[in-house]
Design a protein around this nucleic acid. Structure first.
Lengths: 368, 368
DNA sequence: CCGGAAAATTCTGACAGTCATTTTTTCTTC
DNA sequence: GAAGAAAAAATGACTGTCAGAATTTTCCGG
């Protein structure tokens, strides 16, 4: 006996193939009793849907007919006044989301939740009535709580390190790896006393990823001199200058570009005697070396993730939330000296610094 | 204008869809002149055959009864003898890949590249002739180089931290976040002198992620006493015991479960006086607390990623490689004492340890 | 109880590439 | 020029899905 198909099952039941398909997929278009009857018959006949054909057909049908598949909600939670940086960051993210979503056939609409916008409960209603199922949550200050939404109706991605209420897939820049790569680059340029300054609240928010990578490299690479990190609730000029004078790092890494001025005021001359790298391009004005956190690409990945899940009809909270990251890109600037000329590009820093992603030197152990 | 299809092309040429299909596949049933005409028209119209649909149809037509499926290649690069742990790790990964792939309509076939298997060039041929387009690369020792494959034909994911030859999307356990969460858990259980031992080659391979997180927490949390990490090319009993005696950590974290014996031999009584956590469940025999790296889930995510790209007909090397991670899960065991009873579960460790993913305490700053 | 609108439910058609089978065309030979 | 063979091209059936159309049922005022 040949394996039962959707059509043979439909014939047997006196229904159309579509009704059977819908019933098995749990579509609400089918009467509950019919759906039950179909499911029973399918089970009895040992019917198994072919997932690959299903996926192919779904794609096919969609790409052929509709040019516009739906709307994604970009949700911003604004509790109080936000910094200009945060506003610019979210705007860049939104641009990336919109562009990729558009390529995938989705429009993006922005919703603001909080005192200046709607309440969460109201958002739930709006999304529901508009039939919006895909949601991209933009970074919010603090740990946002969105458990009030009826998550069975949505599939969502959070564009920041993590969210626990509820635990969703996240997309974020890879601060850890970016710091490792940055330190390697600085090492190649000859810097040996890198110094990091960081505001504690920001550091905690990122689970110390900048610091963790920095400390690990200080600890692991013999010819790097360990300058203590300047950690404060808020970085001020006097505290920075005291730290800078005391430890004299040859390159300073941190978020505030004002540090360039402060360094100069203590006699440093950039890039001749000292270097500086800002950790976020959005804080700079193109006048210093900095990291591009690839915001638009992050938005694009987030859009892809949401759309991917939508197309597979996967709603609700994921069983195992994942974190997708993209490394930052170093933008060179007048606050860094360039790497010394090298006879053989592979040998200029004789492997005191272990390889990062740009190095082909093989490492040793297997994952363990 | 919609994308050209086999049928639209056939109409345009005044031929049947089969003839066009045969012509494009180089079948000898078609007259040479006709085939040439078809190829020219296809090129002019920008026709692109959908290979996945082709595979579905082919198998469908061939075997009426069988449930047909696509095929993913799970490629293992084995250069020399591998540790038993590595073998078990890859096997677990493969199981996760196979299960999820099966749900998505794909079978998984394992290929071994290296002295004990085929050469890379040969793999390229095999995959091509078999029509396999989806590839999951299992973790290889060192930095594998697979640039010899013709990547325009495949879409692939690497199941380890990163690969640069070529740069592919990666799926991996989140060692950094797992360590942060582990330390938080240990803190809640009252441990204040955590100590870490680690073999340098492994640490470098993971870009110091275990160490980085460990150092960051030591550095940031005031009431944690900073025990220096034991870093050696290879951890030996004498070196461990010397380190353990000297610094007396109240909980030890590392990869070798033998450390439990070593600790006991210096007079420690677990879990009464000291604790131990192994960093990889595959190294244990269920007799100590350990981290489950969620290998099967990692495999599942990898399979999802590859299949997703296959369905979208996205072949080749991604423009922006991403890293997808999943946090490990702590498996409790007889080498750890439990958290003290608490009147109010929210207050037992008065916020000296900043929140990780299990804590709702809000943090402060916006992404910056 | 009827007309008619609205809602609920089900059905239809088209979609893609393949291949065994069938039909049409061309060629060969007597 | 007809029979037969060979070459070339066409047909039909196959999978599951989705938008939209068709059908049935429900509801409500008069």
């Amino acid at each position: 006996m040949p394996a039962p198909t959707l059509r043979s099952l439909a014939r047997e039941l006196g229904l159309s193939r579509t009704t059977v398909s819908d019933a098995l997929c749990g579509s609400l278009r089918v009467k509950a009793a019919t759906a039950e009857r179909v499911r029973a018959a399918a089970k009895a006949a040992g019917y198994e849907r072919n997932p690959l054909t299903g996926a192919v057909m779904s794609q096919l049908r969609r790409s052929r007919t509709q040019q516009f598949r739906g709307v994604l909600a970009a949700v911003e939670l604004v509790e109080d006044v936000r910094s200009e940086i945060a506003v610019r960051y979210n705007a860049a993210l939104l641009a990336g989301i919109s562009e990729r979503a558009s390529e995938l056939g989705f429009n993006v609409e922005r919703f603001v939740v909080g005192p200046q916008g709607v309440r969460i409960k109201r958002l739930d209603t709006i999304l529901h009535t508009r039939g919006i199922q895909g949601v991209v949550l933009l970074p919010a200050s603090g740990f946002p709580d969105l458990t009030a939404l009826d998550w069975n109706r949505y599939t969502a991605v959070y564009t920041d390190y993590f969210i626990d209420h509820p635990p969703l897939h996240c997309v974020c820049s890879d601060h850890y790896r970016s710091m490792i790569a940055l330190l390697r680059d600085l090492h190649e340029r000859g810097y040996r006393r890198p110094g990091l300054f960081m505001e504690i609240p920001l550091s905690e928010r990122l689970q110390y990823r900048w610091e963790g990578a920095f400390l690990a490299v200080q600890n692991a690479v013999p010819d790097i001199v360990a300058v203590p990190t300047l950690r404060l609730q808020e970085i001020t000029r006097p505290s920075f200058e005291a730290w800078f004078r005391k430890y004299n790092p040859d390159v300073v890494i941190g978020h505030s570009p004002e540090a360039v001025t402060w360094m100069k005021s203590t006699g440093a001359r950039l890039p001749k005697t000292h270097g500086f790298v800002c950790l976020n391009v959005l804080r700079t004005n193109g006048n210093c070396a900095t990291l591009d956190l690839q915001t638009a690409e992050l938005g694009a990945r987030a859009a892809e993730l949401v759309v991917g899940q939508l197309l597979h009809n996967e709603l609700g909270i994921p069983t195992q939330p994942s974190l997708t990251t993209i490394p930052a890109r170093l933008i060179d600037g007048p606050t860094l000296r360039s790497a010394p000329r090298q006879r053989n590009p592979r040998q200029q820093s004789p492997s005191t610094m272990p390889p990062t992603s740009n190095s082909p030197r093989p490492l040793s152990l297997q994952e363990a």
